[in-house]
Nucleic acid binder design. Sequence first.
DNA 1: CTTCATGCAAAACATTTGCAGCTGG
DNA 2: CCAGCTGCAAATGTTTTGCATGAAG
Lengths: 158, 158
Amino acid sequence: MVSDPEARFQHLVEKVRQRGGRLTPQRVAILRILAASKGHPSVEQIYEQIQDDFPTTGIATIYKTVALLKEMGEVLELGFADGSNRYDGNRPTPHPHLICTRCGEIQDLDVPGLDEFLAQALVQISPETDYAIHSHRLDLYGVCQKCRAAGSRDSPAE
Amino acid sequence: MVSDPEARFQHLVEKVRQRGGRLTPQRVAILRILAASKGHPSVEQIYEQIQDDFPTTGIATIYKTVALLKEMGEVLELGFADGSNRYDGNRPTPHPHLICTRCGEIQDLDVPGLDEFLAQALVQISPETDYAIHSHRLDLYGVCQKCRAAGSRDSPAE
DNA sequence: CTTCATGCAAAACATTTGCAGCTGG
DNA sequence: CCAGCTGCAAATGTTTTGCATGAAG
């Protein structure tokens, strides 16, 4: 279901190139992290990871690159009420997420039949509301196994 | 589908009272606005509205009251990637929203069969992921009639 | 009277912006 | 070369916090 990180990385590189964007070492490193990440990192987390390879990288550079990818539709942005944003660089098309409200873990999810269900629902909804729908978001919130075992208190995302 | 504003207001008042919270004039005004609002106001918008009745009210008071209601599960919070949060004080239970990505308008939505669909999907998902799911969020993003007519550029929420 | 809430201002964050200097192509 | 990117610092915007004063119950 999730594309091969290397292939995805190559795809991102190609997209940026096509757009006339430069492939600086920092930018390439960001693309690599996003393409490989399974955990829907925040900008802060990307920033920390990149320190290993390019310790001088400023956080503004991460923001700028993520904004570029967002604009190109190559990254999916998930915003939360506490102000934290997380990014999915593997699958930029809307897809459901499973989110632990204790530790903040975010997993991709497959809900069989979701797209069909939504498509069918839209047939009824669109005429009535007169919206041109182009995207969606489905989150399921819960508590993951680890957190239930630990038995602590709530806190992060949503 | 949306409860009577007055009834909802009474309900909120009662809940706050039960919890041992005080019913100051400012707080009552906030409850009234939230109970009546159809447009999923931001804190800022509540703040502006309340100036008519209580011009000295500080915005921190709004934040505190909204946090109280959130903690009691009497308001639904919708967070967006641009940092803006919007609140639904009518229907605190998760339900789908239709969101215009140009003007930021948020409408409640009925997707017939959604709850059944999700419930059935969870039967398959839960065992496999081992999450205890307690909530969800479904947004549909599009462009509303007015904005399409105006034909401007994108910008706000998501 | 005794909390708890208010309202102000300061602090805390996350994100954006401006700009001089650097560098990929 | 030179347009676009970097990295720093300052600016912005939102939400939280601390605390003295005030009022609900």
